[in-house]
Design a protein around this nucleic acid. Sequence first.
DNA 1: CGTTTAATTGAAAGCAGTCAAACTATGTGG
DNA 2: CCACATAGTTTGACTGCTTTCAATTAAACG
Lengths: 258, 258
Amino acid sequence: MFKESPLELLVHKLETHTRLGEDDRRALLTLPYRLKTLEAERFILSEGEVPRFSAVLIYGFAFRQKVASDGSRQIVSLHMPGDPVDFQSLFLDISDHDIRTLTDVMIATVPRAEIQRLVRTYPAISEAIIAHLLIEASISREWILNVGRRDATTALAHVLCEWAVRFAAQGLASDDGYELPMSMDQLADVLGLTPVHVSRTMKTLVTKGLIMRDKRHISFADWTKVCEVGDFNGLYLHLQAGHADLREPRPRTLSACR
Amino acid sequence: MFKESPLELLVHKLETHTRLGEDDRRALLTLPYRLKTLEAERFILSEGEVPRFSAVLIYGFAFRQKVASDGSRQIVSLHMPGDPVDFQSLFLDISDHDIRTLTDVMIATVPRAEIQRLVRTYPAISEAIIAHLLIEASISREWILNVGRRDATTALAHVLCEWAVRFAAQGLASDDGYELPMSMDQLADVLGLTPVHVSRTMKTLVTKGLIMRDKRHISFADWTKVCEVGDFNGLYLHLQAGHADLREPRPRTLSACR
DNA sequence: CGTTTAATTGAAAGCAGTCAAACTATGTGG
DNA sequence: CCACATAGTTTGACTGCTTTCAATTAAACG
């Protein structure tokens, strides 16, 4: 999976949108870390907690959630290998949301103070982290639009497209589609809907001949049409197509949608 | 409004959550800028545009929006004086959303490259900007929860509370409440509802004796109860109560809700 | 004082929610 | 190897919050 350090995944992630120098890379790779495996549905960080460590996802999926007082929950982001899931509280005292594992995962935990030190010492790393945060913010904005203004069909098609592109950029999807790492309940909490309705909506996407589904494997019968139905245009993901590492693992059918 | 430079507002904003040194302050205050006034509803930055300047709000209100393909729009954030509204595209090539004026505003525009230079040169400024971005991200997450999982009454009460606290922190609200800088249409686009329903919902809040309303002036009959109805707990705003500048202009009734 | 824009109200329709039951897949133990 | 338990998904029928469309009222303005 990685040659020397699992933190190479982090370096690689940051380099997808910023250029790092040799010393920056070294600083990141020599960060002290501890590997940890967690089962699905576990908490990496809870709301109200004081974050002392910063976790980088090595394999598996994770997500952020917020819970309303009536017990309903909203999933606010999805994360995949390489993502530094704790940067959102890098300079904040208490966490305002939960970070949970979606699948069995491996994370590398780094003392938060060490990351803070790098930010203060290495301008390029600081810039890379800012760029990373800006992209997460952009995805959040699209997420708000999705739950706020799109009907169930459009919203579902949209996230399926978004994840197809993001997974592909990480080499986690092929022309044959990808493995949706979520239950109907979790998808419902992504979309602000009920699992019952998500199930129905998913069915209509299949019935209409837009996607194929086998268990949790999703593939696209007509990528362009799904993008249209889902009002999807991947610009907000800020994946510069010009970047060498992104071109290859990205399937042709997916990159078609700009 | 400001003694020497309008950029003092920015310095002040950044200092609410990070400590800056004398040199950091000076670097910010000697940034080249041009003052500009804009009428309400104008675009500060449009989706797809390449941002070359970074705007700091000097007075008035602004907001971010995203527009779906069916023409419906979602407002994704609200900004007030001192806010650096363009930091969201500081290191991104094209804007993924619109930034618009809500009221007549004055902005100070700074070349984007100048801000980037400061990030690379002054670690404390870099840290302050990151902290600022993290708080905006936190507010975004709460916004997603609001739009995705809360019913109209709860969601409306929630934003009224959030803005009461944020306005108070900027000295824009008093014990007597505050001036809502929005029309029903705009509020609807904040909540992912229709203006008709927002109007009805607002009425029920008044009828239930929770808030008072005179045109766009909002005041709270029972702050604690509105917080309850709105499922509001201001922790996610990360306004450290310990900070001197925040204590005074924050009305007692508002600070009651943690 | 008419004109324009924003807010409000009413009635009807619709998308998604709720509740409960049936179904499917997977895994376990006898 | 099969019965049974478990967890997740799907389906049906009914309810309800919010939308839609249209009409009315109120406020702002020259």
